[in-house]
């Protein structure tokens, strides 16, 4: 009798442990398998360039791009261009985030704020972002201002919409708890409303960072005398496809980097969520 009691539990445990190790190995194999196709593409690309199937005017070889990258890092061209573009993105993002979050809090916390802010934001949201470029050039000229303004505008809307809906989505029962605990208006905002809106606001942050890079790329294509966009446009004049591709790769890497930063932030800020992978 005692064996029949103990055996099911040992049986139940054994397969679990037996499955754990192959599961891990399978995930690693899967991760490696995902690398195969991109690497194969690189190899084919390199071979095609070497065999003369791809001319340098159409697309430079991966090795040529890599050596150009080293050259441009060495003479400072690439690092300077990145610094200029990152500064534009950061300035635009900071402005747009402050506006988007500030307006969302104003609209989220009171009916009056909602009536004052939300209709305007919903109207402006319908305007095509890049369609505003001609106006921005007329208003701000062709210096840094229109580029930063375009990024800021692109960033403000996703952050506004998500933070606003995050604030409105906070559980009313928790607001009652705040009332019973006599937290006061500011305590309610600080302890309940803002932390409660954070998960949704972080979704908005990821969206807005995507828009920020896109807006920057477009703005830098149109008129720039420095930055990554300038580097790419300049390279086009001289048919330097290696520099063009390098610029695109750097844009992509910057986008992935900021996305990874937000995911790290989510991990840190949302550990309270049950089952959130820490």
């Amino acid at each position: 009798m005692s064996t029949s009691v103990s055996s099911p539990s040992s049986l139940a445990r054994a397969p679990g442990r037996a499955r754990a190790v192959p599961g891990f190995a399978r995930r690693r194999r899967a991760a490696l398998a995902r690398l195969v196709a991109p690497l194969a593409l690189l190899v084919v690309w390199q071979l095609a360039s070497g065999a003369g199937l791809l001319s340098e005017r159409q697309l430079a070889a991966p090795t040529a791009i890599a050596s150009t990258a080293l050259d441009l890092i060495r003479d400072g061209t690439l690092t300077d261009a990145i610094a200029v573009s990152v500064r534009r993105a950061a300035a635009g993002f900071a402005l747009g985030a402050a506006a988007g979050i500030g307006l969302a809090v104003a609209a989220g916390l009171s009916r009056l704020g909602e009536h004052a802010v939300d209709p305007l934001m919903q109207m402006l949201r319908a305007l095509p972002l890049f369609g505003l470029i001609p106006l921005f050039i007329l208003w701000f000229g062709i210096g840094e201002t229109p580029k930063v303004a375009l990024v800021a505008l692109g960033v403000a809307f996703p952050l506004y919409l998500n933070t606003f809906s995050g604030i409105r989505g906070v559980d009313g029962k928790l607001a009652e708890v705040a009332e019973v605990l006599r937290l006061g208006r500011w305590g309610l905002v600080r302890h309940i409303v803002l932390p409660g809106a954070l998960p949704q606001a972080l979704v908005g942050l990821r969206q807005s960072l995507g828009v920020a890079w896109l807006a920057l790329i477009v703005a830098e294509q149109i008129n720039a005398s420095s930055g990554l966009g300038f580097m790419i446009n300049n390279a086009r004049e001289f048919l330097r496809t290696d520099v063009v591709v390098l610029g695109l790769v750097v844009y992509a890497a910057l986008g992935l980097l900021t996305d990874a930063l937000v995911r790290l932030l989510e991990r840190r800020a949302l550990t309270w969520r049950k089952g959130f992978p820490v």
Binding site: K173, E176, I192, R273
Partner: peptide
């Protein structure tokens, strides 16, 4: 004390008790 405990999910248990 409510029917559902209504603990604030983003505050640790101790911070919930000490809230306000």
């Amino acid at each position: 004390a409510f029917q559902e405990p209504r603990l604030v999910p983003w505050k640790r248990v101790r911070a919930n008790v000490a809230l306000g």
